[in-house]
Amino acid sequence: MKFTIRHRTHYGYAAIASQSYNQICLLPRSTRTQTCLQTGLEVQPKPEHVERKVDQFGNEVATFNLSVEHRECDIIITSLIETADTLEPLPLSAPQQQNLTTLSSLHHNDALMAKDCLLGSPSIAIDHSVDSIINELPANDLPVLEYANLLTSHIFTTFTYESGFSSLVTPLTDIVAARRGVCQDFAHLAIAVMRRQGIPARYVSGYLETLPPPGQEKLQGSDASHAWFAVYSASDGWYDFDPTNNKRPDAQYITTAWGRDYADVVPVKGVVFGGGSHTLTVEVDVTRIDAPATLEPVVPQ
């Protein structure tokens, strides 16, 4: 399937901002299951340069300075993505212990990331905060991908999605205690459980195509960013799971970036000088292109 994605981030300042420094991690990467055909970044006011780099995990990151006085800042990323139509079946995987043994002799980039994804990370400590969830699951002697599947549906059935329940700093213990959260919390929760069980797990940020209720037209800007997790099977690589919707990400999922957790792939972060208090608005549109189409003109960078 082909999609255009338009992701707009808008900062409005109460007072004049004299300078800001921004970092964007929203340029979708090509993966085993998707190809990024085209991507463009437009910023208003226009910065002198936009620098791009590839981060430690291969995500594309853009940075720019605004050194003119400004009262608002608009960041628009437009991408054209093609996703694989068919979902690859889950391969047979080894149980946790055997998976680790195989992993220990591997040293390529994927394996190194998997080793990193066994340890604590900025938003996910290795501690006892998810022990109660582990106790609700069967013993950890299943093949790791099966165990991940089980955890995915367990979170889906025993947790309630509640928009606005959590903020970016809500600790996992609160999520576990309230049994509520949003996609990012569920991804973090799943990762925490997997790592506690000795299974490498990473955070994936991206988008999910949403369809309007039958008979209604899709509202502009109504889509949202999404997040899920992936698990590493030492014999076959990384496989994605979405605990928010209890499914394996398919053609309707578009991947932007991956990391150990949210902190590695913060979509937009920055520091502003002056500006007083500020507002932040985000609009996302994921539009399926049925017929071959060209992307709206984008500003070349």
Partner: peptide, 21 residues
């Protein structure tokens, strides 16, 4: 010599961002 402020980080989904900000 003015000091910088961290911009609200866009997370997922939108409602949460507004709350965070």
């Amino acid at each position: 010599s003015e000091t910088g402020f961290e911009l609200g980080r866009a997370g997922v989904p939108v409602n949460d961002i507004l709350k965070a900000v």
